[in-house]
Amino acid sequence: MTTKIVETQDLHKIYDKNSAKPYEALKGISLSVEQGEFVGIMGASGSGKTTLLNILATLDQPTSGSVEIDGQDVTHLTFNQMADFRSKKLGFIFQDFNLLETLTARENIGLPLSLQNAKAASIQTAVTSAAEKLGIADLLDKYPTQLSGGQKQRVAAARALVFNPSIIFGDEPTGALDSTNARELLDTLTHINQQGVSILLVTHDPFSASFCKRILFIKDGKIGDEIDAGDKSRNDFYQEILEKLGTFEQ
């Protein structure tokens, strides 16, 4: 039996609820992500992808409905509890500005552990092992400005990985990269996923999505469709996504 890492029930999100023009961005989303899955969320611009991800990542709260992550209901946490939850359970890779330019790669990667008040020595071992997994062990003492875009994203991935999170969230992590670097990061994510870490990726790029194992399509704040990679090759899956987008976005 597999365990569920993320499970939501009937999520609604209404922006500007008390204003003259409230806007319902999510209209009842129920989904689940199993341990070790690599799930993609796709949809047109404005369909509610970032809204959903922010709620799953405890950066925002839903208007109604529930979110459980790693068996814990996160919808009723206080602001501090949400912060602590993120620092212990959730890894992040965003599109841009992932790293602090004033810190070395080593310090950037170790930051989440520092926030949990881990011992300096144990931080060092964790950072080194995460960096080795991602092949950036020799870059640890460089500053972000001395790294390429792809290397920066790998440092960000190492930071997301360093404390063994329950799940890693990515919002268009390849958005700011050229195709070579994007490819490299996606390979890295696949590699991480193969080691058993669950990943949830928001993207509107079919190429990025083709690396996922399952894709949820959002339209107007609702889940409209879902496809599974199964045993298909990545290329076949890519074609399928393109077709799906064709029919889906009409």
């Binding site: 990542a57 950066l59 602001f79 501090n80 912060a83 602590d84 939850f85 993120r86 620092s87 212990k88 959730l90 992040f92 965003f94 500005f97 992932n98 602090l100 930051l111 989440p112 926030l115 930071r159």
Partner: peptide
């Protein structure tokens, strides 16, 4: 913003 995302408390 980034620090907030990776789970830094507001008080911190």
């Amino acid at each position: 913003d980034m620090l907030n995302k990776i789970g830094t408390r507001r008080s911190t």
